[in-house]
Design a protein around this nucleic acid. Sequence first.
DNA 1: CCGGTGACTAGTC
DNA 2: GGACTAGCCACCG
Length: 103
Amino acid sequence: MQTSENNFYDKCYKVISLIPLGKVATYSAIAEALNSKAYRAVGNAMAKNPHLISVPCHRVIKSNGLIGGYALGSSKKINLLRKEGLFIKHGKVVDFKKNIHIF
DNA sequence: CCGGTGACTAGTC
DNA sequence: GGACTAGCCACCG
């Protein structure tokens, strides 16, 4: 019985886990990868973040390049992204378009 | 079924 | 470029 591993949420986590280190993706991009436009639902999946450790949700940012939010605090998210080689300025990723991961 | 909610987005002023 | 509004989809009670 398929406990539950084919939901919209789990799909989000799966796609996000595909993001390589040093790269980022937008909520809309993830929704597109799921063949949907539910970028809001993607954010909901992160908000529940049952896989905060297993999934690099910190690599997910807004389409605007803003950091967005994080379960441990946006500051922690910025710190992690910086350690991955990304540049953050004023809460936004610098040249994030060059580090966007395309699925 | 319906209303409220959210780690969003695009458009307008 | 900052602030506000409306539209958007999935989940929960």
